[in-house]
């Protein structure tokens, strides 16, 4: 372990749940508004996990009102991400599910374990 890894390891979260692409997750996000903090939930399918160490990030996609797709990317170790909860485990054959962007309705479903 070199010295830079040691620095990074101080800022890494240790209690992260195990999840992968295709899983449905519920992410609790801390939002600060004029000296007031509140927690917002973002629930959707993980379509990509990329990076490593302190830079590890994942993208969650959900279908919002009027069938509008919404994607958010989170840095996994950021203090803004308060908690990540796995809702269910999906069965997928690739690590990046960008093909979901071109699909809508029943075609955009993912098999659940």
């Amino acid at each position: 372990m070199n010295k830079i890894d040691k620095v990074e390891s101080r800022y890494l979260k240790t209690d992260l749940p195990d999840f992968k692409s295709g899983d449905k997750v519920r992410v609790k996000i801390k939002i600060s508004e004029e000296n007031k903090d509140r927690i917002q939930t973002f629930e959707g399918i993980v379509i990509s996990i990329k990076g490593s160490g302190i830079n590890k990030a994942f993208t969650v996609r959900k279908i919002s009102f009027n069938n509008v797709g919404v994607e958010r990317t989170f840095l996994i170790n950021s203090p803004v991400v308060q908690s990540i909860e796995r809702v269910n485990e999906g069965i997928v054959r690739r690590s990046k599910l960008y093909y979901l962007r071109d699909r809508a309705g029943k075609k955009a479903r993912i098999k659940v374990k």
Binding site: N2, K3, I4, V7, E8, Y11, K30, S32, I54, N55, L75, N77, S78, P79, V80
Partner: peptide, 11 residues
């Protein structure tokens, strides 16, 4: 030593 990225408390 080198450079990296860290998080502040506000994210």
């Amino acid at each position: 030593i080198g450079s990296t990225q860290i998080f502040k408390e506000n994210g």
